[in-house]
Structures are given as structure tokens and as C-alpha cells.
Amino acid sequence: MKNARAFLLLLCGLTLAAPAFAAPDDSQIDRGHKVYDKWCFPCHGTGVGKPGTASLAARGQKPAVLEERTDLTAPTIKTFVRHGVLFMPTFRKTEISDADLDAIAAYLTRNNKP
């Protein structure tokens, strides 16, 4: 799985030849995954008792689980984390540092189509 993702990224890189943006590397995505598990999963994960997922589902968002989405952008993610929405509160830099937030964004946008 990890290798496959690396391969895909590599492929993207080759196809685009000279990417206009620095594609996040695997270690950044891994770090993002860890931070996501700690800070986002308890509300936005799969399974019962996940109010963030439930709230998105109730508002017709498909898929409702953030990890499954391919339409999120780094600025959107950062806006929600730093400003909150509805009953989702803001997250401070002592909780999720700017670097960790970059990593979360890398993780949640890993499957986005370029």
C-alpha cells in the first residue's frame, strides 16, 4: 500500500515532469496520518460515535469520512482547523502546530487528482 502510493506519486512526478508545487513526500503524509489519528479521527473517523462524520453525513456530504475525500484543499482544511465550524471548535498551535497542520493537509489531500 505504502509502496503503491509512493509509486503513484512518483508516476505523477514523472508525468508532470516539473511539478508546479512541491508534492508532499511520504514521510510528510505519514506524519499527517499520525496527527490525523490523534486529533481528527476521534470526531471524523469511521464507525459509531463520530459526531463530525455524523454531522457531515446529515448535511449530505459524501463521503462523510474526511480520509475518503479527494476534494479537500490545504487552505480549506486549515480554515476549518483554525476557525472551527458549527460545533467544531478551533484548534490552537499548542495542539496542532502549523507544521502538523501542513502534514494533516498533505495526508487528507494525498488522493486528490492533480
Binding site: P42, C43, G47, V48, G49, K50, P51, G52, A54, S55, A57, A58, R59, L86, F87
Partner: peptide
Amino acid sequence: PQPFPYSVAVGIPDLSVFGVGAAR
């Protein structure tokens, strides 16, 4: 985790309490 409050009742922390109110 089990639905609120059973997870918390067996010592497993979660955030499901925030789902008790309305989704909006």
C-alpha cells in the same frame, strides 16, 4: 467504541457526546 455513553462507561475515551445534540 460503542455508541455514547457505553464507550466512556468502559473507560474508552471518545467524542461521541458531541453527536448527542443536533447535527447542525
